[in-house]
Design a protein around this nucleic acid. Structure first.
Length: 415
DNA sequence: AATCTTTGCAACCGCGTATTA
DNA sequence: TTAATACGCGGTTGCAAAGAT
């Protein structure tokens, strides 16, 4: 089970695609859509497996692919997203229209990792290399160096961005990060300062403020309760519905600089600390579309189903959920912050799938800067021995662990 | 000019998960 | 309920081009 049947088939071509093969695949999908990938090679007259056809289409033949080198802005965005998402290339790619996960993965492995290392930043943890090397020294030093790390990273990004002409780092409207990090500017009380988030200048401090200033500060200032902290950390989720709402209102890519966006954000994000828990409402992700053309937009929103939607012969196998949408529900869709009652929260935890997602947030210090605080209280409940590792979904995906996570969340929802 | 090494990219492989029969 | 099939993801590999010696 699980193995693609075509992997066993013999006499199938492998290796690089010839122009003739490309032509066949392109014309077939243009006419009929891909439908069931396993049937594509036969219908298109190709001696390839469906998997290979799919890959070729996604990574090379798709008409919406952006060609050419990555811009500085794109590189910065990838670094920022990687700090949050780890090696989730498909989710990172979802934030970069026209770029494929494979492309981004290659860029990361061949280029960006080196760049970060040269700057003394560990590409895995996004912490200073010195800290990673001296992994023995923990806690208090970690806390302060965490800030140094993200500060270095920010400086790197800013320095490089300043060399690229269009729009400074602080001002890029399409930047995911520019939408994300300002939310956390105000530390534990960030959710109470929504209006200021639309100030473009906020991003300059955003990396520093992704984390509480320190363990102690967080717990002794205005963050007395775990719920405050919880309310703070997942704020990056909040812009997805904003962008989606924007799109539904305007049919255009989300514009952070617009008054509409500013008002919308103020409306969507409540002045409470309950934003940790999403409502059952899931939104489509924020995606910057390459053009204002709605048909193009619908492609982006529907991911690979573009051709199915546009072709007369729509023989989709019924799996209509686009990868992007699924991803959005995973990483950005849990965004409506209005859920404040415990029942809703518990409902959300009902799905195992969802539990795993939250488990990942709980598991990843980059996603959840308040992890240290949580684990102080939940040390017995939450596994946190992988704190400095990138996301390891499978590590805690057992139902037992899920129950622990759910229990932990329930505990905090009561605070 | 020839050879070796490095780099970047395209494609493959194996796995987990969702869907279908 | 179970097994087969299909899809999508991330890690890895192979190879051609570029660079170094």
């Amino acid at each position: 089970m699980g193995r693609h049947s075509c992997c066993y088939k013999q006499k199938l071509r492998k290796g690089l695609w010839s122009p003739e093969e490309d032509e066949k695949l392109l014309s077939h999908i243009t006419k009929y859509g891909h439908g069931c990938w396993s049937s594509v090679p036969k219908q298109a007259g190709l001696q390839r497996c469906g998997k290979s056809c799919r890959l070729r289409w996604i990574n090379y033949l798709r008409p919406d692919l952006k060609r050419g080198a990555f811009s500085q802005e794109e590189e910065n965005l990838i670094i920022e997203l990687h700090a949050v998402l780890g090696n989730r290339w498909s989710q990172i790619a979802a934030q970069l229209p026209g770029r494929t996960d494979n492309e981004i993965k290659n860029l990361w492995n061949s280029c960006l990792k080196k760049k970060l290392r040269q700057r003394g930043i560990d590409p895995v943890t996004h912490k200073p290399l010195s800290e990673v090397e001296n992994a023995g020294d923990k806690d208090s030093a970690d806390r302060s160096q965490e800030k140094v790390a993200v500060s270095n990273e920010l400086n790197l990004l800013k320095a490089e961005s300043s060399n690229s002409e269009a729009g400074s780092y602080e001002q890029r409207p399409s930047s995911f990060a520019s939408q994300v990090y300002p939310l956390e500017m105000e530390g534990c009380s960030s959710s109470r300062t929504i209006n200021s988030r639309c100030n473009n200048n906020l991003l300059s401090n955003s990396f520093l403020d992704r984390f509480p200033n320190s363990h102690q500060e967080s717990s002794t200032t205005n963050c007395q309760q775990p719920s405050d902290l919880l309310g703070n950390f997942p704020l990056q989720l909040n812009y997805a519905p904003t962008a989606s709402h924007w799109f539904s209102q305007t049919g255009k890519p989300f514009d952070m600089n617009s008054e509409f966006a500013s008002n919308l954000i103020s409306d969507i994000l409540p002045p409470t600390t309950s934003s940790f828990f999403p409502s059952p409402v899931c939104y489509k992700p924020s995606i910057a579309f390459p053009s204002d053309d709605i048909s193009t937009a619908s492609f982006a929103m529907d991911g690979s189903r573009y051709w199915e939607a546009s072709a007369s012969n729509n023989n989709s196998n019924g799996s209509n959920s686009s990868p992007i949408l699924e991803n959005s529900m995973f990483s950005w869709g849990l965004a409506d912050c209005s859920a404040s009652d415990k029942d809703a929260q518990i409902n959300l935890m009902g799905s195992q799938h969802e539990e795993v997602k939250w488990a990942e947030y709980l598991h990843n210090p980059l996603l959840m800067p308040a992890t240290h605080l949580l684990t102080d209280t939940l040390g017995a409940i939450l596994p946190h021995n992988k704190q400095q590792e990138p996301l390891q979904p499978t590590a805690i995906s057992s139902s037992k662990d899920n129950q622990k996570i759910t229990a932990a969340l329930d505990i905090f929802s009561l605070h």
